[in-house]
Design a protein around this nucleic acid. Structure first.
Length: 601
RNA sequence: GGGGUGGUAGUUAAGCUGGUUAUAACGUCGGCCUGUCACGCCGAAGGGCGCGGGUUCGAGUCCCGUCCACCCCGCCA
């Protein structure tokens, strides 16, 4: 019992590795008391470290004093034990990896006692996230959180391995950069040395990695933190990690195969799953048509049906609201709900409320009777039998099915119906649960338009950023019909989440100038915003392109976590605060004065 | 900026249409127990229901405001 842990007795094993082959060994384990079962004459504890659990037994016959001390053990005490690995005989616990053995402890040191924790360190109880975030240091002890962070670490490790093996250089870029308007909001950092001026925290290394290509570094990657001062979501945090890649002398296919190699490695190493390569691709237009967005969840059907042309052929079929939707820029779409998934009146009302929350005016519906007639529909009385039949056919609707309609401005119809599809997919249990046969539905969404029309500003704006290369056969439309210009832009989608996006960049100044012109950006503006990059392109910039993968989202999907917060050690709340540290916080007047900053609140 | 959900012992929850001392489980404390692994048994302490107003004879329960968390739209790669 005079054993001196740590200084003399070093850890011999972790708590997740001892099995029957170790029986007879004397071992030293360190960890936390995960559970205790005190039978008086025999005390059992589950000792936990990040590797797992091992049962430790204290009995007077192993050591009298150690057994007495063990009676004082409580949850989350930090302890060291020494003992002999013994078989559990008939008492094997098949739920534990170490369940064949137990340690008969001869020595115990309580390094530190623990107050009762604010919540129990176990995975089963769904503790309020507010509490978890306030006591993150306790929350992170939970096996699920430990696994999530271990997975992150392994993603980083495999990513570095992969890129190093493929001739990439890991190069760093600045976080403190120049503010440029447009795009995501930036976090600003006041400059003490330049009174009244501000740095911005980089929202991505985009421009810098292109400069690496210009400089001839050829293949770059970085696992890099990025910052965006936008509202948070389940899958969006103000600071997040990106696996950032840029390559020279490549086309889109080269980028895809480089990234597919990484994805395949991660899935193999982390999940033991062999992905079939290449990953499937889909045209942006097709994705919009079938799913209403550019990040379709392919794990279930319920695809959209575009009825615009059908309705146009029948000139609205006697339904005024359908006829209204034939104006330019407007569309009519539907979603067929098969009769196997009946929806009650209340379900439909709920869905309508949800749709309205997404900006819809309403949610028109039609239920098919035995002969294809419509009931429960606001259009049933006025619609011509011909259009009704045509719609039924276009939707492939059978008696008992339900058709849900959206019509109006294209972007709105798409987003409302895309959300409706997801909502129904969840409601009908069509989304396979995590780990159930591994339905990993990857998709490259390719060839989107370079520009979007901004309804409010009445101008064309870059759908992503202004440095995406248009298709060569699209360049002719830059001046005449910008909406027709397709570009080398691509998103990697997994199960409805965008896990990456990138493009082949413009490397020729003359085409770049045309793009700026189409965007209504004059030379002066362009110079002010991107001067250094435009300059760089003039000096023999190589053809190049790249991509950034959302590392946090990858970790979330790989681990099956419900939110990005569950794969981040210290995440922010939806209001961007840190409940543990209290950030963001007040700053004293002296500090502000030094920075020449004054708060107006 | 907008819509929705939630906040009740340390924790997770129950508390229906407002009605006497606000329930339970886990945890905590005391006692017993040598084969448990969600150990068991006996006993105890612990909250006044996020906060502030209001309605009422009477408010976790109804109303108004407010704070916090979460989900979504807008926003955002």
């Amino acid at each position: 019992m005079a054993a001196k842990f740590i200084d003399e007795l070093k850890r011999t094993n972790n708590c997740g590795e001892l099995t029957a082959k170790d029986i007879g060994k004397t071992v030293v384990l360190f960890g936390w008391v995960h559970n205790r079962r005190d039978h008086g004459g025999a005390v059992f504890i589950d000792l936990r470290d990040r590797a797992g659990l091992t049962q430790v037994v204290f009995e007077p016959r192993f050591d009298q004093k150690t057994h007495e001390l063990a009676g004082e053990l409580r949850l989350e005490y930090s302890v060291g034990i020494r003992g002999v690995v013994e078989s559990r005989g008939a008492n094997v616990n098949p739920k534990l990896k170490t369940g064949e053995i137990e340690i008969h402890a001869t020595d115990l040191e309580i390094f530190n006692r623990s107050e009762p924790t604010p919540f129990l360190v176990e995975d089963k109880i769904d503790t309020d996230e507010q509490k978890r975030l306030a006591y993150r240091f306790i929350d992170l002890r939970r096996p699920a959180m430990q696994q999530a962070l271990i997975t992150r670490s392994r993603i980083n490790q495999y990513t570095r391995e992969y890129f190093a093996g493929h001739g990439f250089l890991e190069l760093e870029t600045p976080f403190l950069v120049k503010y440029t308007p447009g795009g995501a909001r930036n976090f600003l950092v006041p400059s003490r040395l330049s009174p009244g001026k501000f740095y911005a925290l980089a929202e991505s290394p985009q421009l810098f990695k292109q400069l690496f290509m210009v400089a001839g570094f050829d293949r770059y990657f970085q696992i890099v933190r990025c910052f965006r001062d936008e509202d948070l979501r389940l899958d969006r945090q103000p600071e997040f990690t990106q696996i950032d890649v840029e390559m020279s002398f490549v086309n889109q296919d080269d980028i895809f195969s480089a990234i597919e190699g990484l994805i395949a490695k991660l899935w193999k190493e982390l999940l033991g799953i062999e992905l079939t390569l290449p990953l499937p691709r889909m045209e942006f237009d097709e994705s919009m048509r079938r799913f209403g967005n550019d990040k379709p969840d392919l794990r279930f059907g319920l695809e959209h049906v575009d009825l615009t042309e059908v309705v146009r052929k029948h000139d609205g079929g006697g339904v005024p609201m359908l006829k209204d939707a034939l104006q330019p820029g407007q569309i009519v779409k539907a979603l067929r709900v098969p009769k196997e998934h009946p929806l009650s009146r209340k379900d439909l009302d709920d869905l309508e409320v949800e749709a309205k929350g997404n900006g819809a005016k309403g949610l028109a519906r039609a239920k098919l009777g035995d002969t294809g007639e419509w009931t429960q529909s606001p259009m049933a009385k006025t619609i011509t039998p011909e259009l009704r039949l045509a719609i039924n056919q276009a939707c492939g609707a059978q008696p008992g099915d339900l058709i849900l309609f959206q019509f109006g401005r294209e972007a709105l119809v798409h987003s409302v119906l895309a959300n409706l599809r997801l909502s129904l997919g969840k409601r009908f249990g069509m989304i396979p649960p995590y780990g159930s046969g591994g339905q990993w539905r990857f998709l490259w969404v390719v060839n989107p338009p370079l520009f979007e029309y901004d309804e409010e500003a009445k101008t064309w704006v870059a759908a992503h950023h202004a440095f995406t290369r248009p298709h060569d056969d699209s360049v002719q439309y830059l001046e005449t019909d910008p909406g027709k210009v397709k570009c080398y832009r691509y998103d990697l989608v997994l199960n409805g989440f965008e896990i990456g996006g990138g493009s082949i960049r413009l490397h020729k100044p003359d085409v770049q100038a045309k793009v700026f012109k189409a965007l209504g950006i004059d030379e002066e503006q362009a110079k002010a915003k991107f001067g250094f990059l435009l300059d760089a392109l003039k000096y023999g910039a190589p053809p190049h392109g790249g991509i950034a993968l959302g590392m946090d989202r990858l970790a979330m999907l790989i681990t099956g976590a419900a939110s990005l917060r569950d794969v981040l050690a210290f995440p922010k709340t939806q209001k961007g605060t840190d409940l543990m540290t209290g950030a963001p916080g007040d700053v004293d007047g002296k500090q502000l004065a030094e920075l020449n900053v004054k708060s107006t609140v």
